Computed example of a mutant assay.
Amino acid sequence: MWLEEKGKPAVEVASSCGLLNKLHTNGVIGDAEVTAAQMWARDYETGIMGAKDPEASSKGGNPDPEYALLSRIAAADRCRYVVKCLGKRSEDFLYSFLIDHMSISQVAGQRKRDRRQISGAIELLLGQLADVYADMPGKMWFNKIG
């Protein structure tokens, strides 16, 4: 994905979320937070929204139906685990900027909060999300022993 900002040349970024990339570039969040956010977004899209898991079809073009099903179940289980650890409100917040791609200003307007409060909340939430993914039990990863 290419990110374009006013007055700056376009840069290629790995994240599909411009807000996530901006926070990372500005040093507000680190690699662990970016990785956790990307994992959560992929898990949500795969397990909750029913999108195809990109890894399920990366082996030779045709996905193995059993692997695709296990992948979807594992993604949904991880999403439920995140809600159990962080709460439904945190999931709604993550959804706003990782799935709906809302800006800090849009989220602040939606929640009737100051931009600085929202920015701080995002930073804290992503730190907590990184901790949840780091400490997630091995059984949550169907292909992981643990």
Rank of each mutant, 00 (worst) to 15 (best):
E55N: 08
K6P: 10
T46L: 00
N26K: 13
S71C: 07
I104A: 01
D131G: 00
I29R: 02
F142I: 06
D114Q: 11
A41P: 06
K22T: 15
K52Y: 07
W40E: 01
I104V: 11
A10Y: 08
N21Y: 00
K139P: 08
R78F: 09
P9Y: 08
Y133L: 11
G120M: 13
H24A: 06
N21A: 07
E91D: 06
D131A: 02
A74H: 06
L86F: 07
G146I: 12
C85Y: 05
K52N: 07
V83N: 08
A68R: 13
I73V: 14
R113Q: 04
R80D: 13
P137Q: 13
W2M: 14
G30V: 03
P9C: 06
D100Q: 07
R78H: 11
S96E: 06
E123W: 05
S119M: 13
G47S: 03
A56G: 10
A10Q: 15
L98H: 08
A37N: 06
R80M: 06
Q106L: 04
A74Y: 01
I99V: 14
G27Y: 15
P65D: 08
A76Y: 12
K112M: 04
E5K: 13
G27N: 14
F97I: 04
D77R: 15
E45F: 09
C17V: 11
G60E: 12
N62V: 15
Q128R: 11
S103D: 04
E12G: 09
L23F: 11
E12Y: 12
I145Q: 14
C79V: 09
L98T: 09
K22S: 14
K22N: 14
P65M: 09
G7A: 08
